[in-house]
Design a protein around this nucleic acid. Structure first.
Lengths: 141, 141
DNA sequence: ACTCTGTATTGATGTTCATCTATACAGAAG
DNA sequence: CTTCTGTATAGATGAACATCAATACAGAGT
């Protein structure tokens, strides 16, 4: 399932890996930049997370830990191109300011990025961040 | 990455799937029973989650959304056999009642199960639940 | 300039939550 | 039965959070 760079495995918590289904290396960079790459860790079944890694990764899980945010995220992810206008996904049963608040939280967690195009704002998933999160959960490295 | 039962895909949110890396079907059952099987959904990039599915799955992400709980979970998952005594993982910087509190939350979320053996209590991961969570995050179905 | 629509921010409010101390419970060993 | 150790529960407290109404901001069109 995982191809894991063994030279880093026992050395430090933060290390590189790549998924077989999405074979791209993930260099270590800042998460909240919304860039292509993210810092991540070995699957949880490999080695326990350190205190700092736990903080960083838990923040991403926490962002998905609200039903409204998870729904918004899934609406973005399942939209064509992994991108959606706010106007397309705003109907989740809460007020418009609350939708905006939750989208900001998803953005701050590095799970989505936003871009204004004229009147509308488009949100898209940050694929490698999410792949890294899924990788952390992988129990069969 | 995913083999997805297409006959259910467009029909309803809750549907069956299996992972290629862990090729076992996951029939639909209760999550908090701690059983082998869990109810889960298509990857988020397939279709948006419904309101009820969002509640259920967000509860699992929320359980991993605290640094202490994520560390405890990783300590359990990375222990040999995916199982650990509380005494082995209790050193995460908070008091003993707080550790117990967090372990209960992980158990209530269906992510771990617990078993008393004599004086000690052992916690182990619920693998299919975690695999299902990882599957939900998969962006390349 | 003015207005209209889409999105973000501010400030307030009630709820949830993480944490602690104190205490209770369970099993083992005297 | 009593004591000791490991784990869980109860209750309290301060912080974080989800939500909303009101308001501000940004572009587009008239």
């Amino acid at each position: 399932m995982f191809i894991y760079t063994e030279e880093l495995a026992g050395d430090i918590d933060t290390c590189q890996y790549r998924r077989m289904s999405n074979p791209q290396m993930l260099p270590i960079l800042e998460a909240d930049t919304g860039a292509e790459t993210v810092p991540c860790c070995a699957p949880l079944s490999r080695q326990p997370l350190g205190a700092e890694d736990s903080e960083r990764i838990a923040a991403m899980f926490k962002a998905l830990g609200d039903p409204v945010r998870l729904r918004l995220f899934s609406l973005i992810a399942s939209h064509e191109g992994g991108e959606a206008c706010v106007c397309d996904i705003a109907d989740v049963g809460v007020s418009q300011p609350t939708v905006s608040h939750h989208l900001k939280k998803l953005r701050d967690a590095g799970l989505v990025t936003s871009e204004r195009r004229g009147t509308w704002v488009y949100y898209k998933v940050a694929p490698s961040v999410v792949a890294a999160l899924a990788g952390v959960l992988d129990l069969n490295p």
